[in-house]
Computed example of a mutant assay.
Amino acid sequence: MVAYCLVCMLTGSLTVLAATPGKIFIEVARTSEVNGPAICLGDVSSITAPDFFKAELARVDLGKSPRAGRMKQISGERITAAINAMGLNDNDINIQVPERVFVKRASQELDPSRVETALGHFLSGFFPKEGFKVKAFSVRGIEPYPQGDLSLVFDKRYTPSDNGRLSVHAEVWVDGVREGRLTVTGRLSQIKSVVVAATRLERGQAITPADVTLRDMDVFGLQPDVMTSVDQVSGMLITRTIDKGECMTQDQFKQAPAIEKGSVIKLVARKDRLSIVTLGVCKEDGYPGQTVTVQNLTSGKLVRGLVTTDGTVEVVF
């Protein structure tokens, strides 16, 4: 009698475990859009079931998603087989699925203007104090990207070229995953105020502030020694003819002498507290801080002296 009761109790327990609690209804849509890298049953269907079974059914894996913006086909038989693999009671589940199911991966577009803005921030690290522009901007490699937090990472090995040509790579990342690589090209234009000739200037001419002016110009491709201040050229001598509007560089000038060759100058000889002043003829162009040869007009002798800033020559003993 006891054995009979135990058998009855075990049989009843197995019947309860095998039964599916409640009716399950699954309706698979013919077309769906997914966000993630994998396609789950819950992404492509409407599921009516008790909460526990509904959550498990929603996680049924139907394969990898297509690339962002692309579409993929899944057969109805494959979906049905994946559901049946859970081992549910056929009498308690109703599946409606098309013969072919089309699944598209959601995507986001990358506007080239966003790339250009990010490029500007990247290049500002190379030109922190100088204004610059990017001309003929072009970007290759843009494609649809998965939904998520998109960021651009430019190649840290990039170094600006002297001629202003721009070519740099950037990686596209979405939610911490590398999704593509771009190539950005263009031409850098760096604007500076530089000294240009206000009129045609002849070789040997001494420059006055009225002879030159400042103008904003693109200095990429120009010589690195362009003049940027009027004070740099004022009083200098031109070594070659410069046309109006031409940008000026250091190699076009030489310092004007404080004393020109053949000039009559004041010649000073000092020794101890004695100071003798006379006149002399300078035999060469003289520059402040340098020595020149002077002929004493009184004695006719040639002496060497140091040129001062006021054009006097002090005899060197």
Rank of each mutant, 00 (worst) to 15 (best):
V2F: 07
L14F: 10
L17M: 11
P21M: 13
G22T: 10
K23S: 11
F25Y: 04
V28L: 09
T31W: 02
V34W: 07
V34T: 11
P37F: 02
I39W: 07
G42H: 10
G42T: 07
V44W: 07
V44F: 04
P50W: 00
F52E: 06
F52Y: 06
R59F: 04
R59T: 09
V60N: 11
L62I: 01
P66M: 04
A68M: 00
R70C: 06
I79R: 14
A81C: 01
A81M: 05
A85I: 00
N89P: 03
D92P: 03
N94D: 13
V97Q: 05
V101N: 08
V103H: 05
K104H: 04
A106Y: 03
R114S: 07
A118G: 01
L119T: 00
L119R: 08
G125T: 10
F127P: 08
P128C: 10
K133W: 13
V134E: 02
I142K: 07
I142S: 06
P144I: 05
Y145R: 09
S151R: 13
R157H: 15
N163K: 14
G164L: 14
S167C: 04
V168L: 06
V168K: 09
V172T: 12
E179K: 12
L182C: 01
L182W: 14
T183C: 01
T185C: 00
R187L: 10
S189V: 04
V194Y: 09
A197R: 09
A198C: 01
E202P: 00
R203W: 15
A210W: 10
A210E: 09
A210Y: 08
D216R: 11
D218R: 12
V219C: 11
F220D: 03
P224G: 01
D225G: 07
V226E: 05
M227Q: 04
T228D: 04
V230P: 06
V230H: 00
V233I: 11
G235T: 08
M236N: 08
R240Y: 12
I242M: 15
K244W: 03
E246K: 12
M248D: 13
Q250L: 06
Q252T: 04
F253V: 02
A256C: 14
P257S: 09
E260V: 08
S263E: 12
I265D: 05
A269Y: 14
R270A: 10
D272V: 00
T278E: 02
L279C: 02
G280S: 13
G280F: 14
V281F: 02
C282A: 15
C282N: 05
K283R: 15
E284Q: 15
Y287N: 06
P288L: 09
N296P: 06
T298Y: 09
T298C: 10
L302K: 14
V303C: 15
L306P: 03
T308D: 00
T308N: 12
D310W: 00
E314S: 03
V315T: 09
F317H: 10
